Simulated scan of single mutants.
Amino acid sequence: MRILLAITALTLTACGTAQPIASSGYSLVQSGVLTAGTQSEQPPFAMADKAGNPTGFAVDLMNEAAGRIGLKVQYKTTNLQGILAGLSAGQYDVGVAGVGVTEERRKNVDFTRPYYWGYTAVVTLKESPGQKLADFTGKRVGVVSGAVQEKFVDERMAGTEKVKFKDQTAMIGQLLSKGVDAIVLGGADAEEYVARQPVRIAAQQDSTQGSAFPLRKGGDPKLHAALDNQIDAMIDDGTYVRLYRKYFKAPIAADLLKERPRLADKIRGTDLAPTGR
């Protein structure tokens, strides 16, 4: 039996990717470990601290959820496209970042229920005169390749020249050096850059999708359910609100309360209740 288990744990695909193996009741890429693709430049969801360790709202949520089901998280840093491709290739069990849920992405990965819902922001330099989407017609507008904001630029800013970047670090660098006239980000990401760089939010629109944890398509349904259940448990015991306040000041979006209805009771009458933006 021990020999059989050892063989199973070492089984590889033809391309060398480890096959999921059962551990602690879950089917995982590595025994006893939740292998997670993450980013190092997507504040406040996933970023590297001064020591180079993953941190951020998504990371804190996942660390807590995994710990509650008896799993350790092993992070592998990549970019958004790398997270989604790695899940499809069976390299990761979960993606830990601010990943928007779209029908196109659902073709290749599964998602937990959203854990965050924000807005889309157009960010420009402080001295830029742009105040609304139309002001950027004919301008160069940056977006992270594969991000949900690509569709926003295509549909809402059709008169602009879309410039794609591999990650936010490269994109904000080009904005600061005036290589592009504006960039499009999730609102929470944008607010982080506004706090640290000479940029401002020129325009914003409500998001049509929330952020969730992507999982391997057709992967372990028990793991999927466990992660969702633990996020709800964190809502019930106040952990979610504590972590939210650590990274955000804005009220929680009404759209998120539709996905996580137990959260409504926890924030009713507080400064986190939706304002109806």
Rank of each mutant, 00 (worst) to 15 (best):
P198K: 03
D236S: 08
R277M: 04
N229Y: 05
H224Q: 10
L256N: 00
F57Y: 14
L223E: 00
K246P: 01
V163H: 12
Y240W: 07
Q197H: 14
D110E: 04
L185F: 15
P43F: 10
A66Q: 02
G187Y: 14
Y75H: 03
D265A: 15
A182K: 06
T102L: 14
G142S: 13
T112H: 08
L71K: 00
Y240E: 01
L133M: 14
E104F: 07
V99P: 04
R277G: 08
E104Q: 12
G82Y: 11
Q197E: 13
E155I: 04
R262F: 04
G138A: 12
A254I: 03
E259K: 12
R68E: 08
I252D: 01
I83G: 10
Q197Y: 15
N108D: 11
Q205M: 13
E161L: 15
G82L: 11
V143C: 02
E41H: 05
L4Q: 10
L5G: 02
L125E: 08
E191A: 15
T8D: 05
V96W: 07
G118Q: 05
A254E: 12
V184S: 10
N53H: 05
I235P: 01
F57V: 06
Q19T: 13
R242K: 15
E127M: 06
R242H: 08
A14Y: 07
A97G: 07
K246Y: 01
E41S: 11
T124S: 15
G138F: 15
G32K: 04
Y247W: 09
K126V: 15
V148D: 01
Q39H: 02
T124W: 10
A58Y: 03
G56C: 07
V241G: 01
S145D: 11
T8S: 06
T270Q: 03
G269L: 05
P261K: 03
L87R: 06
